[in-house]
């Protein structure tokens, strides 16, 4: 099965520090979410795990789906998604911040919403992409409850779908 994986610069796992070699199979004895196994994202999971590099990963063996990820007992990096880079990530952040601004403009008397929109814009301006997308989700929930939040995250997922082509 094909999935996606975010890694830190240098193809390093963000939480394990494990250095990945593209093309090489990595195996564990089982897939236990958060404990052991190769962790990866479905497209819907992508907005939550943003990091420096995005890779296409092939998963094999036991594959377990959990929360906001899938976990497999074997995996190998297939191809780097070159389209995900700093400039693209900035676009994602700017789009999210713009949506927050739109929500705030539609409710000019909501001071907290305006504050959230300003936070999102400020963070996007600082290049803090993942913070900006999170703030946008929180702002959307403030404006439109859980469905609003889901819609914002869905918009971010759509952005990724277009990126992946």
């Amino acid at each position: 099965m094909t999935a996606y994986k975010f890694l830190r610069a240098g193809s390093v796992g963000p939480f394990t520090g494990f250095r990945w070699e593209p093309g090489q199979w990595v195996e564990t004895d089982r897939a236990a979410p958060c404990e052991t196994g190769v962790h990866a994202c479905r497209v819907d999971d992508l907005p939550y795990w943003c990091s420096d590099e995005l890779w296409e990963i092939e998963l094999d063996g036991d594959v377990v789906s959990a929360g906001y990820k899938v976990v497999a007992s074997r995996g190998r990096l297939v191809r780097r998604v070159e389209a995900w880079h700093k400039v693209a990530a900035q676009e994602l952040a700017d789009a999210a911040a713009a949506r927050s601004r739109g929500l705030s403009d539609a409710k000019p008397r909501d001071a907290m919403l305006r504050a959230y929109a300003e936070d999102a814009e400020r963070r996007a301006g600082q290049g803090k992409v993942y913070v900006a997308t999170f703030i946008a989700a929180v702002a959307a929930e403030h404006a439109g409850g859980p469905p609003g939040r889901d819609a914002e995250r869905a918009a971010q997922v759509d952005w990724f779908r277009r990126l992946l082509g």
Partner: peptide, 18 residues
């Protein structure tokens, strides 16, 4: 390594952005 799975995921999602 003593957190239940869902809390561990929450921690990692948070660390990624904080």
């Amino acid at each position: 390594g003593a957190l239940p799975v869902d809390e561990r995921e929450a921690v990692e999602m948070h660390l990624n952005l904080c």
